[in-house]
Design a protein around this nucleic acid. Structure first.
Length: 416
RNA sequence: GGUCCCAUCGUCCAGUGGUCUAGGACACCGCCCUUUCAAGGCGGCGACACGGGUUCAAACCCCGUUGGGACCGCCA
């Protein structure tokens, strides 16, 4: 099931829900039950609230909302002991108030499946808010009611929720409800070892999707964080991962997000898609070359195959492709590579009709020419490459020339 | 500041008292292959935070120290 915890109207919108659902579906995580929304269950929370109030766990608090920032410590319980008469009076006079749960236990112990028994003095956290002045429930409260109503058996969440758990445990006990199994898993840290945030370079799922990462690569990488059961030598689907998963083998220290390790899975995933398919997707990049060969795709597919293994996403591939075609700003050293034989080679190549402009035929010309002139391979190819691309390395030359197209090759060769 | 969580290579994970001169993956370095760069194959560098216990024996158990993190909202 999927539940939107949307009681904070300022931070919730249908647009957010849409994108969350989109991300989940794209990742291959499909909610198989109903989709619920806390804002649609408001009456239920009120019902439970009244029950807690009747049993004396809850009281109205007239204090102004949060004295802005400055975490001074817990709420001191100011309104807990206001006499009933005064309470009634203030409520009737229209004073605004929230409702708090009186947290009185000095030593509350709950069991975390991974960490064992954890004991808290809940008084130190202060009395917490169950419903806001506008009557809406807080997450802390609504979630307990929902989990109970939806018969949730396991609450698996980030360890930042640990301080929250004793409070919810209190609510369960006050209601006499069966407590779910608590599992607090570590949260992913950035390279500075802080909670991953936009500021620290965390990128949204949709951004990765837009850059052409495969969902399986992302999921496979994430599975390796804190969990030793995740395969490191292949990408896996959410279903495969799920069948392997064992909650008890989750490590307890917080993993640091490593983009390089993530790229490893991206590359693995890219390699599993065929060059022909990629060619279909990236055809446009090729058509931008001035002199595209006719319908012969073999060379272009081969070029993709050459570039593919080091790319973690479609975006990286298309960037790599663009780089292969462009002529780099030549530095002097490379720019002066032009030699006497260049004009002769140009003639040879120009003699090759565009219908025969393929890797193999170009390769033959190159080889023959090199042999005839007794040019050292290293020098020959290096000079040629430098003149053609401005770089001293890249994809195999004949292949590159085939993909670059006859017109451009002749143009570049003739220029310098 | 208070409360709590955590602690093995740079990073992610193995390791649950002897089989650990600590294993794998990513990264890095080298070699091979190759006209170049990648990819691939082979190899290398590299860690049990520190100090006390317990034990015949400790990366593994206990305590302390140090370090890192989270939380302390009418956010979730």
């Amino acid at each position: 099931m999927l539940r939107f915890e949307d009681t904070d109207s300022e931070r919730s919108s249908r647009a957010f829900e849409e994108s969350i659902l989109d991300d989940l579906l794209w990742l291959g995580i499909n909610p198989d039950g109903e989709i619920s929304r806390q804002t649609e269950r408001l009456e239920r929370y009120v019902e439970i609230l009244f029950r807690l109030e009747r049993d004396g766990f809850v009281y109205p608090c007239f204090c102004p909302a949060a004295p802005d920032k400055e975490g001074h410590g817990p709420y001191p319980g100011t309104c807990r002991n206001i006499p009933p008469d005064e309470r009634r009076g203030r409520i009737e006079s229209g004073e605004s108030f929230c409702r708090r749960f009186a947290a009185l236990a000095s030593g509350l112990t709950f069991r975390d499946r991974l960490r064992g028994d954890l004991t808290f003095d809940v008084r130190l956290g202060g009395d917490f808010v169950l419903t806001r002045a506008d009557g809406t429930p807080t997450y802390t409260f609504a979630v307990v009611v929902d989990d109970h109503d939806f018969k949730v058996t396991h609450v698996i969440r980030g360890e930042e929720h640990i301080p929250n758990t004793p409070r919810q445990e209190l609510i369960y006990r006050a209601l006499g409800w069966e407590v779910p199994e608590w599992v607090h898993i570590p949260m992913v840290l950035d390279s500075e070892r802080h909670k991953l945030s936009k500021r620290s370079g965390a990128i949204s799922v949709s951004a990765y999707r837009d850059d052409g990462w495969s969902a399986e690569a992302l999921v496979s990488y994430m599975a390796t964080l804190s969990w030793s059961g995740a395969p490191t030598d292949k990408v896996s689907s959410p279903d495969e991962l799920a069948s392997l998963f064992d909650i008890d083998s989750v490590a307890l220290d917080s993993p640091v997000h490593d983009p390089e390790r993530m790229r490893h899975f991206g590359r693995l995933s890219m390699r599993s898609v065929s060059c022909e398919k990629l060619l279909g997707e990236l055809g446009e990049a090729f058509s931008r070359i001035a002199d595209p060969p006719d319908e012969i795709d073999a060379d272009r597919a081969a070029l993709l195959g050459e570039l593919l293994p080091e790319c973690a996403s479609r975006r990286e591939l298309s960037d790599s492709l663009a780089r292969a075609f462009e002529i780099a700003p030549v530095d002097d050293e490379l720019g002066n590579e032009r030699t006497a034989w260049m004009d002769d080679l140009l003639d040879r190549l120009a003699a090759l009709p565009s219908q025969e402009w393929f890797t193999m035929s170009i390769k033959n010309i190159l080889k023959k020419f090199q042999k005839e002139r007794a040019l050292e391979g290293k020098i020959f190819y290096h000079a040629l490459r430098a003149t053609l691309t401005g770089r001293d390395h890249g994809a195999p030359l004949a292949l590159l020339m085939a993909c670059l197209g006859r017109k451009i090759v002749i143009e570049r060769l003739g220029k310098r």
